[in-house]
Structure formats: structure tokens, C-alpha cells
Amino acid sequence: MLLGLKASSDWGQIKDRLQYHPDVFEIFTDVPDFTPQGIQHLRQAIEYVQDQGITNIVLHQPMNFKGYHSELIVPEQQFPELYEFVMTTAHQLIDLAIATDSQCLIHGSYDGEHGFKAMLSAYGNLTNAQATCYHRLDQLKNLGGNHVMFENSISPVFAYGDPQVENEIIRHQFRLVADVSHIFFSLHGDNERLVASLRHLKNNIYHYHLVDSLGQTHDSLPIGTGKIDWSSVIPLLNPSATTIYEINLKNQLDCQEQLASHQYLSTLGY
């Protein structure tokens, strides 16, 4: 298994992760990273990580903006400021990923909260919202090419687990990110359907978020402490893809929970 670690653009977090010599480094961006000074700092952070010999770098679009999730389906007329933020940061990250030969990660959707219901209601039904999501993902795919990837959600707008939905996602030829816990939670803790989804989408997945869950809430547990059957999951991962451990940390300046997850998989022989 690759050692993939995640941090913000904070120098303290970055240096904590780098002491363990990860193979993959994911930078979770936030609103301050998109001021002129923030973008400059973010680029310096990317270059600093690259100077340590790490070539697999993923830039994660901000999750939140002023109390809302950065939903890709955000209606422009009802939420003009949020729409501007979501689209502008997506374009800025794609440009930065291309310039630094990194990867940009965009969420197809989130968890059905933080403004989601109001956004969904603007479309009348889920089918219309999904059509808008796919259309915007197509635009970003055309813009970013091999430097942009799209992560699955817990909300039904862009969730894995339904074979028919997955067939439509495959038809669009999106480069996918699979958060294993998101699939597990969306399927109410069903390991058999989780495995089926990972097998079905395997050739389209370029990056994984490895994180455990009890399957009831978005709990982001260290691997081995939830109910995901990792001995069935790991053999189904695309060997050409990158991976990181996206675990809730007690201390953002100490990634011990991520390291413990890696060690757990090592004890299973991976």
C-alpha cells in the first residue's frame, strides 16, 4: 500500500506529514487559500512538497463557504456568491494542478446538508439536479483533462452504489475518486454492495480515500475501527490509482491516526 497523507496548506501540518516520507500528499484547501496571497502560498506549498521528491499531489477543493457546502449543483440565481466561489475555486485549482503537474479533486456533491435541500428544491427533482451536476462535471473534465478528478458523495446527486447510476457515470468517462466510507455509508453499511461498487468502477477510479465507518454516520474512523471489510476491499482497488488516509485527527499537527490506519493494513499483509 502507498502511504498517502492529508494536510491543509498550513506549514505545521505539511512538515508533520513530510517527516514520514509519504508517497501521496493531498492538500485540503480552504477559503483563505484563494486570496492572491493564499494562492501564492498554496503554490509554494505544492513546490515545497515536490522538492521532497513527492510527485503524487492532490489538491482538494474547499468543502465549505460561509456555512454552505461547496455543492456543484448550486443554483446561480438563488446563490450567486456561493456559485461564484464554487466555480472560481474549481477553475483556479485546475489551473494550478496543470501548472504544477498535480491533480485537482472536485466533489460531485456532499452529504445532503448545509443548504443542500434548498439547492435541490430549485431543480424540482433529483433527476434535474443530477443532469446539472453531470453537465458541470463534463465542463470541468474538458477544462482539466488528466489533471481533474471527481469524488463521490453521500447525497444521491453523485453517489456510488447504484449500478445504473454508476453506468451513467462511466458513460461520461469521468476520472473518479472513491471515498470508501462514503460508499459504505450510502449503502447503509452493506459490505457486499460496497465491494460490487468498487469492482464495477475500478477501471475509472484514479484516487481513493481510505477511511473506516460504522455505516450510520459520516464518522471518518481509523481503518480497523469500523465495519468495513478491508480484506475484501483492498484487493479490488485499482493498482494504478493513488490512495490517502482521510481520517479525523485529534490534533491536526499530528497525523498519528493516518499512520495507524496504514499500519493496520500492513498487519493484513497489504
Rank of each mutant, 00 (worst) to 15 (best):
M149W: 11
L187M: 15
L176Q: 06
L137M: 10
D179L: 05
L210D: 00
R136C: 01
G145K: 05
K202V: 07
I169A: 01
H172S: 10
S213Q: 07
I169T: 02
N203P: 06
L194V: 12
E192L: 09
Q173D: 15
N167K: 12
R175M: 02
I228T: 12
E168L: 14
H207E: 02
I169Q: 01
F185A: 08
P163T: 02
R199C: 03
N191L: 11
L143Q: 13
V211L: 01
I183P: 06
N146L: 09
K227V: 05
H218Q: 13
L221D: 05
V148T: 07
E168A: 13
A196E: 10
L187Y: 11
K202L: 03
I170A: 15
V157E: 00
N146F: 04
V148I: 04
D190M: 02
L210G: 00
H200F: 07
Q173K: 14
F158I: 05
D138C: 08
V177L: 11
V165H: 10
R199Y: 04
S220T: 13
V165T: 14
G224I: 01
L198A: 13
D138Q: 10
L221P: 08
S181D: 11
A196M: 05
G215K: 01
F150A: 09
Q139C: 06
I223A: 02
R175G: 10
V165Q: 08
L143G: 07
Q216R: 08
R136Q: 05
N167E: 11
V165Y: 13
S153W: 07
S186K: 15
H218F: 10
H182F: 11
Y208F: 13
I183S: 14
P222M: 04
N167S: 12
M149T: 14
F158P: 07
P163Q: 00
R193L: 06
G224Q: 03
L140E: 05
D162I: 01
A178E: 14
L198D: 09
L201I: 13
L221K: 07
Y134E: 00
L140V: 09
D190P: 06
K141I: 11
S181Y: 15
E166Q: 09
L194H: 05
M149R: 08
S220I: 09
R199S: 06
V157N: 03
Q216P: 12
V148S: 01
G226I: 03
I228R: 01
R136N: 01
G144H: 14
C133M: 03
L221R: 09
I205M: 01
